[in-house]
């Protein structure tokens, strides 16, 4: 599904990713853990196509196609989704207007017909119900005045609505209390399927109790330095990242 080969990226003359290799198979849930500054968020932005980064070397293949030259919206239309660590507030843009515009833009790019309003409403309401999102929230401007937990739930709602094939969750657990974490994790788990892969970026093992990964990768200094099964997360929780910091230095 997703293959990252020798990815080397810099921003403002600083190398953030340095020959990173990572493969996530179809249907796999891969977790990426690592200390602050190891390049985890950069990795998510570069996969999604944020402009600020300069890719010096390497490629990112989604089902064999190198997506590095594609615009963010073209990547989205191919089934890539990034749940932001800090979802942005967009005053003046109604949540429903935005959801419909996003869904129809992707459908249009894939040559599919636009959804009718009743069909669209049905899908939004179903996703909102599962994520405990009040109707009132959908009537407001996108993310404006939402709490941290509400913003994260709105990200998962978008994911449920857009039905991507490859989902990146960038520290989705940050700023969530236990209850909100459970709701978000249930939303994610409901979307797990043999055709959909996840890259779950997190500092803490806590999230992985709720979203149990198939593989765990440790990032340090811009590359993956160790890979293993779910037990690796437990080991990190116990020992911390000290070993990797030293190894990287």
């Amino acid at each position: 599904m997703l293959e990252i080969k020798n990815l080397t990226v810099q921003i403002e003359d600083k190398k953030i990713l340095d020959g990173l290799n990572l493969t996530v198979k179809k249907g796999e849930v891969a977790a990426i853990m690592g200390p602050n500054g190891s390049g985890k968020s950069t990795l998510s932005y570069v996969i999604a196509g944020k402009e600020d980064y300069v890719v010096l070397d390497g490629e990112i293949l989604l089902d064999g196609e190198n997506i590095l030259e594609l615009e963010p919206n073209e990547r989205a239309a191919r089934g890539l989704f990034l749940a932001f660590q800090y979802p942005l507030e967009i005053p003046g843009v109604a949540t429903m207007t935005f959801l419909k515009a996003a869904l129809n833009a992707q459908r249009k790019a894939r040559g599919e017909a636009e959804l009718s309003t009743p069909d669209f409403m049905r899908r939004v309401n179903a996703a909102a119900q599962q994520l405990h999102i009040e109707k009132d929230m959908l009537k407001r401007a996108l993310n404006v005045g939402f709490s941290g937990g509400e913003k994260k739930r709105m990200e998962i709602l978008q994911m449920a609505l857009l039905q991507p094939r490859f989902c990146i969750l960038d520290e989705t657990d940050s700023g969530l209390d236990i209850d909100a974490l459970r709701i978000v994790a249930e939303g994610v788990n409901a979307l797990r399927s043999p055709d959909r892969s996840f890259l779950v970026i997190t500092h803490y093992q806590r999230l992985l109790n709720h979203i149990v990964p198939d593989t765990v990768h440790v990032m340090a200094n811009g590359r993956v330095v160790r890979s293993g099964g779910p037990e690796l997360a437990l080991e990190l929780e116990k020992n911390g990242y000290a070993d990797y910091r030293q190894q990287a230095a």
Partner: peptide, 17 residues
């Protein structure tokens, strides 16, 4: 970027803003 990452082409994202 946020709007484009959700699938809106740049022109449409600009229009919305």
């Amino acid at each position: 970027f946020y709007l484009m990452a959700r699938g809106l082409p740049r022109a449409e994202a600009e229009s919305l803003l």
